[in-house]
């Protein structure tokens, strides 16, 4: 069961992240639901498991091309795959961690785990309908996936 204010908390976190870290705002795309199958993912996905007050998963998924430019915007010259994985995890972690401002301390978040698209579709809890929010940045498109009970 999604609540708008809650989803917005994560969305605001994502927008804030790009504003501060990439110093360039994202254009938020039209959010939609995943009604069948697995959510669409890009090359790398940072997955944060949420427990405590709410249960579910928060994902940030982005293509290599975007991660590379993001790393460069952060003055990181090493754009290895290792660092791209690190970055999607960090973004997912930051967005989820920031959400504690609104959810409070009982909103527990895991350390990020990173999934590459080559490892197959992302399996999320089936009893939830995740909401996918496209984040368009420059010519690249990433997604924020919020899946909360």
């Amino acid at each position: 069961m999604l609540k708008e204010t809650e989803v917005r908390t994560f969305l605001d976190g994502a927008v804030h992240y790009f504003e501060v870290s990439a110093r360039q705002p994202v254009a938020v795309g039209v959010p939609y639901l995943v009604t069948t199958g697995a959510p669409p993912v890009n090359d790398f996905t940072g997955v944060i498991a949420v427990s405590g007050k709410r249960k579910g998963v928060i994902c940030f998924t982005a293509p290599r091309s975007m991660l590379m430019v993001l790393l460069m915007r952060m003055n990181e010259s090493d754009t290895s795959e290792e660092n791209m994985r690190d970055l999607v995890g960090e973004v997912a972690n930051t967005i989820s961690g920031n959400a504690r401002r609104d959810f409070g301390r009982d909103f527990c978040i895991s350390v990020p785990s990173i999934v590459a698209s080559s490892a197959g579709p992302l399996s999320l809890p089936t009893e939830m309908r995740p909401v996918v929010i496209p984040l368009n940045w420059r010519t690249h498109s990433a997604r924020l996936i919020v899946c909360l009970s």
Binding site: M1, K3, R8, L33
Partner: peptide, 16 residues
């Protein structure tokens, strides 16, 4: 803007 549609997605989820 795209973000404004969030309210629709959430309500749609509720309807589903």
């Amino acid at each position: 803007s795209g973000g404004d549609f969030l309210t629709l997605a959430v309500r749609l989820d509720d309807l589903f």
